[in-house]
Design a binder for these strands. Structure first.
Length: 784
RNA sequence: GCCGAAGUGGCGGAAUUGGUAGACGCGCACGACUCAAAAUCGUGUCCUUUCGGGGGUGUGGGUUCGAUUCCCACCUUCGGCACCA
């Protein structure tokens, strides 16, 4: 017997598999159903870290088992190669982003191959490759042509560290940037948006039909933030304009004792001539404009200014009420104006108190209306609709979510395929000019101004193609645009005529299982759902939802329980671990560390890794203790129970308990004098997805000449999976008193008879029970 | 404040159409092998005990013959949203 030399074995099989094209995936295989398992493609920002192993090596277990179960499995990989992390790293190392990225991809590809996953490398895609980004550009233009992409001047989030705008989704609730950690500022800029808000309802409603974990769906619902309410118009006395407000409580209309506009509300300027404290108002508006959202929230005291000399009319009570501007009302939500009901809204109450405004209670404690004209006595719920109708308002829905800001003032991204005529009108760049290539004659140091503006080549290219005075769009796409469709390119990576043929989309989509990081729930996952819906409406894709099942995985922490970080010096280097114990051990340990499909965090434990390595060594040694005898009785139904347990748990991605089941079976093998070869072969097949190299090596040593990964997954016999005997618990008043081994499905009489025969158990029932609770195969409980 | 998830040994975790709590692994202890150590193998390992038992799954109640599992209230931690009208 030789030693378990993981290096030799893993190198050998990775080479052989590649030569044999073992993991090349055909688009169709006779008699097999296609199944698409997806993992998020990585940023090529440097070395592989242990998180990559958890993200890619562990779901490979699922893909491999499904393959053995007879599915034609697609498990592809690529690189999310555009974007800030790569660019920032390149700048830090004084390198060109393109060179830097390509070098990293090369390095990471080698590291990824050491995992021994069943990736089909022929399908590798890279977002920074012109053959990929021409389709990112093309798809964007389809949206542009349908009016789903637009450029607009708006107050946007500005990241002063990364020197670019950010989407709302990329700003954390504490007002810092998700990536750089910088305090986000506000800036008014002209930017490109995608109309994700137009899809808000469908993005929420279609969640109901998805078999995803509920918490992920809830997070998306929260983010979109649908809110039912009413829009109601308030007249302005002696001015021919109305103030439209949004409220979720139209039933409290009679309690509205003032109106508040956001400082940015257009009426503020229009009313300038009418109000008498014009300069005071302007001062407030200007002050508000410089404040970030975070700063607005920081001061606890409400501030505001009354527009003196103008009044609004409450359409319910017809009373004249004052108009204020205050920064506690946000311009981007609802209509940017509210009716203030201090009696029934905490914020309004606070404001009213400070400005000494009247408080009028209009809903009694029982929930019926008071002091509300003809509506008195009506329930609050009924009144919502009735009052809205009465004053000519309309019931409406608003959303927290804003349109998706996709342009960035950075270099390393897909160029936005737009040019401007001399009048400044945006035009799509026609297909013949795609890919619209990223220029290379650019100093890409971030300055806040888009680096492409400095490209002479780009400027000349545009003038040459479109005429004098024409200018290029100089912003690039955020990398989330690339990742909104990358999974479609895997299906047809070499197609030069289409981003992915309909035929292949039909063959593979939707993705059957998508596993990734929880941080993408309200970013990538939401964006890509929108993208696919929009493309579906354009007739370009075959599905209106991209993922049948999405699962978020947990986080691997450092051994000290903190996040792994170079700063703490607590990182675990996967290369080192693979060198020490092998890829199979690292993969299997990460599978064993905890339930994969739960968003939790698991501290790395090198001793735990060694434990898994020990397990594999014991499996290795078993090869010298085989016998030709088949169906050894001592194993009973354990082999069949193991097939069931491992299969069920891998299916639901509970890899930790499936590893445990393999360990139990192997432990039983070890207790035997010799292990029956047929049982051992079944065990190797169960092990194959978890430790593909070792299982393959042992399989070959048994004399097989074809790959174990082409074997079919063992099928268990439900009869044999049951053990011959069951343990029945003997309870007195619900307290455990003993255990009785007895045949399957024994009747109560048989169990009682068995107790009579057992001296130890008999002593517990030397009385006449009031009642006997008998649950077949489980318990017998005597009530005294 | 709203929405959601979770609290189980020294540690990661297992067990839920209610039926032996702590599988599997780590750690620890003891033993075998060894001059010795490491490795390996074996045994033990929730607490407590007068060895009959008694207690125990965040806390307090409840339902039940029986609750980690179901119900009520509370505490703690984590995640999403948040001056969103």
């Amino acid at each position: 017997m030789s030693e378990y030399d993981h290096k030799k074995i893993e190198e050998k099989w990775q080479k052989r598999w590649e030569e044999a094209g073992l993991y090349r995936t055909e688009d169709a295989v006779q008699g097999k159903e296609n199944f698409y398992t997806l993992v998020e493609f990585p940023y090529p920002s440097g070395d592989l870290h242990i998180g990559h192993w958890s993200a890619f090596a562990v779901p490979d277990i699922f893909a491999r088992m499904k393959r053995m179960q007879g599915y034609n499995m697609l498990y592809p990989i690529g690189f999310d190669a555009f974007g800030l992390p790569a660019e920032n790293a390149a700048i830090k190392h004084g390198a060109d982003p393109a060179e830097w990225t390509l070098k990293n991809i090369e390095r990471m590809r080698l590291q990824l191959k050491q995992m021994g996953n069943m990736f089909d490398w022929d399908r590798e895609v890279s977002a920074c490759d012109p053959s990929f980004y021409r389709w990112t550009q093309w798809l964007f233009l389809q949206l542009f042509n349908k009016g789903l992409a637009y450029k607009k001047k708006a107050v946007v989030n500005w990241d002063p560290v990364d020197q670019t705008v950010l989407a709302n989704e990329q700003v954390l609730s504490d007002g810092t940037a998700e990536r750089s950690g910088a305090k986000v500022e506000k800036k008014e800029l002209s930017q490109w948006f995608l109309k994700i808000t137009e899809y808000a309802d469908r993005l929420i409603d279609d969640l109901d039909g998805l078999a995803w974990p509920e918490p992920i769906k809830d997070a998306q619902r929260n983010w979109i933030g649908r809110n039912e309410g009413a829009k109601i118009e308030f007249d302005i006395s002696s001015f021919d304009k109305k103030i439209e407000i949004f409220t979720t409580r139209p039933d409290t209309l009679y309690g509205a004792t003032y109106v508040v506009l956001a400082p940015e509300h257009p009426l503020v300027t229009e009313l300038a001539g009418t109000m008498i404290n014009h300069s005071e108002v302007r001062q407030y508006v200007e002050a508000a404009a410089t404040k970030s959202d975070l700063e607005r929230q920081e001061h606890k005291e409400k501030t505001g200014v009354e527009l003196k000399g103008v009044k609004a009319v409450n359409p319910g009570s017809k009373e004249e009420i004052p108009i204020f501007i205050a920064d506690y009302v946000l311009s981007g939500y609802g209509t940017g104006a509210i009716m203030a009901v201090p009696a029934h809204d905490e914020r309004d109450r606070e404001f009213a108190k400070k400005f000494n405004l009247p408080v009028r209670t209009v809903v009694s404690e029982e929930g019926t209306l008071v002091d509300s004209g003809t509506f008195d006595g009506m329930t609050s719920e009924d009144a919502k609709q009735k009052i809205t109708e009465h004053v000519g308002g309309k019931m409406t829905t608003t959303y927290r979510q804003r349109d998706w800001l996709i342009s960035r003032q950075r270099y390393w991204g897909t160029p936005i395929p737009i040019v401007y005529d001399p009048e400044g009108n945006a035009h799509a760049i026609s297909d013949e000019h795609l890919p619209w290539v990223l220029p290379s004659d650019v100093d890409f140091t971030p300055t806040g101004e888009a680096p492409l503006a400095r490209s002479k080549e780009l400027k000349e290219r545009v003038e040459k193609l479109f005429g004098k005075g024409w200018t290029p769009e100089v912003d690039t796409f955020d990398t989330f645009v690339d990742s909104s469709w990358y999974f479609l390119r895997y299906l047809d990576p070499k197609n030069e005529k289409e981003f992915a043929s309909k035929e292949l989309q039909k063959a593979w989509m939707p993705v059957g299982r998508y596993s990734g990081g929880a941080e993408h729930t309200t970013m990538h996952i939401l964006y890509s759902r929108f993208f696919i819906k929009a493309l579906y409406d354009l007739g370009l894709v075959t599905e209106h939802e991209p993922y049948t099942v999405r699962m978020n995985r947990g986080l691997i922490l450092a051994e000290d329980g903190r996040k792994m970080s170079k700063r703490w010096g607590n990182t675990v280097n996967p290369d080192e671990q693979v060198n020490n114990v092998g890829a199979d051990s690292v993969k299997m340990y990460l599978a064993f560390i905890g339930p994969y499909n739960e968003v939790s965090s698991y501290p790395w434990n090198t001793n735990g890794l060694i434990g898994v390595r020990r397990f594999l060594e014991r499996v290795w040694i078993l090869q010298d203790h085989l016998s030709d005898d088949s169906s050894d009785n001592t194993l009973g139904g354990l082999v069949h129970r193991s097939i069931k347990k491992v299969g069920d748990d891998v299916e639901s991605m509970k890899f930790n308990t499936s590893v445990s089941a393999l360990m139990i079976l192997s432990n039983e093998f070890q207790k035997l004098e010799t292990v029956p070869q047929d049982a051992y072969e079944i065990f190797l097949k169960l092990l194959a997805p978890f430790a593909p190299h070792m299982a393959e090596e042992l399989w070959e040593r048994l004399g097989h000449t074809t790959s174990i990964h082409l074997e079919t997954w063992p099928v268990y016999d439900p009869q044999l999976a049951q053990s011959d005997t069951v343990a029945i618990v003997l309870q007195i008043n619900g307290k455990k008193r003993g255990v009785l081994e007895i045949g399957h499905d024994s009747s109560q009489e048989e169990v009682l008879a068995a107790i009579q025969r057992d001296q130890k158990l008999l002593k517990y029932i030397d009385f006449k029970p009031k009642k006997v609770v008998f649950v077949p195969n489980k318990i017998i409980n005597f009530i005294v």
